[in-house]
Design a protein around this nucleic acid. Structure first.
Lengths: 185, 185
DNA sequence: TGACTTTACTAATTTCATTAGTTAAAATGA
DNA sequence: TCATTTTAACTAATGAAATTAGTAAAGTCA
């Protein structure tokens, strides 16, 4: 009697980050934990369930980091801090992030809830900018969409030149926010 | 003697669009084509190879549609037309689009080339806006990043309310381009 | 201590992907 | 046209991995 559900998810996340999502198999996870493959079923329902759990754990960690990054800040500064933290997480946990993208297509209700927490954080920060509240959702979609797409497309460069990509993301967010301010101030 | 490589990719793409990426298996594709599973190896190298081919075929089709959408247009109007076409393709071929996202992580040189063609199209359109050529790449990253992220996050709504999402994408691109113009004109 | 629960194990089973080896149809080319 | 070569199909194995069934050990708690 040793392994816990959290340990399974942790082991699987580590493997995802080191070897990529399609090298996460029950066989490999079990080996990492020094148990037999069927024993994993005491902690998870299926491989697909495990992948979703990896994604959820990662999303919660991202939410936590981004929330920390926003503490004591408001407006554009806060939004940009959150954006940089989003990128930082992707760089540090690219395998988990790949799983999060997978969960975009194969998520369940819980996935939606956790994503909702992320949206809540951004919503609060958008409010702190003083935009017309009627436009909050429109702005939310613009910012979250941009952040997701920009970081994903730049991820390949972010490994070798993290500082450059971080700076360019910061500049790009400035540009985006200029447009948002003109349109919604 | 009947099936061709193109037919295999087409069948697999149809299955992806109808049942999602993780229901694309050699077994199912072979059944659709009325041949035995091993016969597929006359046309493809492996399941992973097939998935990449689905992605490549989809990316080429998107490039073609977007190029058509840009004909006879310049500047912001052209960029927005391309963006709408990008969204249209995703709505019509969500399974293939999921495969394209998969290929973001598991692509090869050819994947990069096809993506390069897309970047070339956008680069041309950005030039037609008259921005400082030194900033073309920065702008390219902003626009392609935004487009990818915004459409991906809105895809779930795009099935039920395509017109609303199309309109909002158009507005969002306007907002983004306002910022870009102020920053780079 | 004795019932109960948890978690691991071994032993199947199933489902696919993939490989090997064979055959017949189709294409090519003298 | 006819022989040669290529192509693409087939059947039969093989192998890897997920999942299920059934069992035993170890911890929990009354």
């Amino acid at each position: 009697m040793r392994v816990t559900k959290a340990a399974v998810i942790q082991a699987a996340s580590d493997i995802a980050d080191k070897d990529g999502l399609n090298n996460v198999s029950l066989k490999v996870v079990a080996e990492r934990l020094n148990i037999r493959t069927p024993s994993l079923y005491n902690h998870i329902d299926s491989l697909e369930d495990l992948l979703r759990e990896i994604a959820h754990s990662g999303m919660r960690a991202m939410n936590e980091s981004m929330t920390q990054a926003a503490i004591g800040k408001t407006g554009d500064v806060a939004i940009k801090s959150v954006g940089i933290e989003y990128l930082n997480y992707m760089i540090k946990h690219s395998g988990v992030y790949e799983t999060i993208q997978w969960a975009t297509w194969h998520g369940n209700e819980e996935t939606g809830e956790i994503f909702g927490n992320y949206l809540s954080l951004l919503t609060t920060l958008i409010h702190s900018c003083g935009f017309n509240p009627d436009s909050t959702n429109e702005i939310l979609n613009i910012i979250t969409g941009f952040l997701h797409g920009y970081t994903t497309l730049q991820l390949r460069y972010a490994f070798s030149e993290p500082d450059r990509v971080r700076n360019e993301l910061n500049t790009a967010l400035d540009t985006l926010l200029v447009g948002v301010h003109i349109k919604y101030d």
